[in-house]
């Protein structure tokens, strides 16, 4: 059960163009996320990453297949699944406190005003925004806005956290600190996370598993990469780990070439329902250019 807390089972999404044509963004996708796992999805623009996340959040529905959480198919948005939007999506007419409190009072409508405020202040402090409660989003920097978005998502204590390229609009320094904090908070609470990114280093630092999507349209899950790095990671030491460059090269090779060519050279034993699980290991130099860099385990 816990091995399949979230189960994506054969989802397909098609978009209908006004001229009558249909585009299949992705087709027959299968993968699963265990409770407490941090899973990243990587792929080029147009492979339907955001659509997968929207289906998980309930904002979009698949044309075929189902996304199942805790044994129940997703039929719409739920407070059990909090979303951190790429564009932070704060309500600009509310203060920082008001934005977080709005989510909390939606989650627990019976809570008193002081209870809501206390919870909001707790989470605002957790993301390091103590003192900025009365500010409007327009008065905040991009990083601070995204912190509010994170506080809002975490404050409703969701079972699953969904993040759509949450750090991509931030400068490198802010991105680093926010990654550290999100990682710390998620580890502390054992949060189950699904995150979309196109940043390889971000995925290596944060994820337990990385789902690789081929290019769209008709994108598919090429493989699932298990992160060989230990759960305890230090941003500054991570590159000294023997497996670091193995996984990094594997991911970059995929993004540069294999995401394009995968569909034309699908391995004979490829099964859409069980995409191959790869654990990249340290390889003797020079590195082979292709997916032989990984040792197959599934």
């Amino acid at each position: 059960m816990s091995a399949k807390f979230i189960s994506i089972e054969g989802i397909t999404r098609r978009f209908h163009a006004p001229d009558g044509g249909t585009t299949t963004v992705f087709e027959d996708i299968w993968f699963a996320i265990a409770r407490g796992e941090f899973v990243c999805m990587i792929g080029h623009s147009g492979c339907g990453k955001t659509t997968v996340l929207n289906i998980l959040s309930g904002l979009d529905l698949p044309d075929d297949g189902a996304a199942i959480v805790d044994g129940k198919a997703i039929e719409g948005p739920s407070l059990d699944r909090a979303v951190i939007f790429q564009s932070h999506a704060l309500l600009p007419w509310r203060t920082v406190l008001g934005n977080v409190a709005y989510a909390i009072s939606s989650r627990w409508p019976r809570w008193s005003r002081s209870q809501v405020e206390e919870q909001a202040r707790r989470f605002i402090e957790k993301v390091g925004l103590k003192g900025a409660e009365a500010k409007k989003p327009a008065q905040l920097s991009g990083g601070m806005k995204q912190r509010v978005g994170i506080a809002r998502a975490l404050s409703i204590e969701p079972k699953i956290l969904l993040m759509d390229e949450p750090f991509s609009a931030l400068d490198a320094l802010t991105r680093g600190t926010l990654q550290d904090e999100v990682r710390r908070i998620c580890l502390e609470t054992g949060q189950t996370v699904f995150m979309i990114t196109h940043d390889v280093d971000e995925a290596i630092y944060l994820a337990d598993k990385i789902v690789l999507m081929t290019n769209g349209p008709e994108a598919m899950v090429a493989e699932i990469v298990e992160n060989p790095l230990p759960k305890e990671r230090d941003r500054n030491q991570i590159h000294r780990h023997p497996a670091f460059y193995a996984i990094r090269n594997h991911l970059i090779d995929f993004l540069v070439s294999r995401s394009k060519t995968f569909k034309s050279e699908i391995p004979a034993d490829y099964d859409r329902r069980k995409p191959p699980v790869i654990v990249p290991q340290n390889q003797p130099q020079p590195l082979p250019p292709s997916h032989e860099a990984g040792r197959k385990v599934a």
Binding site: L59, L79, A82
Partner: peptide, 8 residues
């Protein structure tokens, strides 16, 4: 979408 995900 924020309102939808918060089941407002």
């Amino acid at each position: 979408n924020v309102a939808r995900t918060l089941e407002v």
